[in-house]
């Protein structure tokens, strides 16, 4: 078991219950869609899984280890094994494609020579060969999201989280991006994606966990459920 959520509840300071007693197990190498309407708790669950936030009660275990109380070193190790892609890309707009991807490797103190080899490799994987020097601000939405994916996978994480990655993209671009996620998953990276895009979920025959009002209402393979 790679990821386990045990009785996870998250209540925000304003009293809103985002997650209510969630229990979930995800195996290594799985591709899991977290679906549900806006406010169902998909993004909150992803934030708890990569430890951007903490559950109010319950615990999340990654590879059998609770991530509630981690030292700085353990948190760093957890993050280095996880990649995150956001709906709004969260790229450094004025920087080049290369710099945006390289930041993952620089932050993990990889030597410059290795960065020069690894970045073109990742850009090839996401279909952005030859765009290294281009400032991100000049790219289309789909291209930006590819840069975000490249950044997330540059240090070969075990788990890739994606929070509504196709939210701002047109259907054709979304589908191309989804194929990229499937390819990444085929290389044994566990992919957990929050989305409310029915077309996408229905198109790929993957495990679908459906959330409603902070609870899991369905957990089955294939098809969109609300």
């Amino acid at each position: 078991m790679l990821i386990q959520a045990v009785n996870v509840t998250k209540v925000y300071k304003n009293g809103l219950t985002a997650l209510n007693d969630i229990n979930l197990c995800i195996d290594s190498g799985e591709f899991v869609f977290l679906t549900g309407q806006s406010g169902a708790g998909k993004s909150t669950l992803i934030r708890l899984m990569f430890r951007e936030d903490q559950p109010t009660s319950g615990k999340i275990l990654i590879a059998g280890r609770s991530i509630s109380r981690l030292s700085e070193r353990e948190t760093v190790a957890l993050r280095r094994n996880s990649g995150v892609v956001f709906q709004d890309f969260r790229l450094l707009e004025k920087n080049s494609v290369f710099d945006n991807v390289a930041i993952t490797l620089k932050a993990t103190e990889v030597p410059k020579e290795q960065i020069k080899l690894r970045v073109p490799e990742v850009l090839e994987q996401v279909g952005l060969v030859g765009r290294e020097k281009e400032p991100v601000i000049n790219l289309s939405g789909g291209e930006r999201q590819r840069v975000a994916v490249a950044r997330a996978i540059a240090n070969k994480p075990m788990i890739l989280y994606a929070d509504e990655p196709t939210g701002d993209l047109d259907p054709q671009t979304s589908m191309e991006l989804m194929k990229l996620f499937v390819e990444i998953n085929n290389q044994q990276t566990t992919v957990i994606m929050a989305t409310h895009d029915r077309e996408i979920v229905n198109h790929f025959n993957k495990r679908v966990v459906t959330l409603a009002s902070g609870r899991i209402v369905s957990d089955r393979r294939g098809g969109f459920r609300l």
Partner: peptide, 16 residues
């Protein structure tokens, strides 16, 4: 700020 956030997500240490 954005760069610092990104660095934290991808596993930079506090010292870095």
């Amino acid at each position: 700020k954005q760069e610092i956030m990104v660095m934290k997500w991808v596993g930079a240490t506090n010292w870095f």
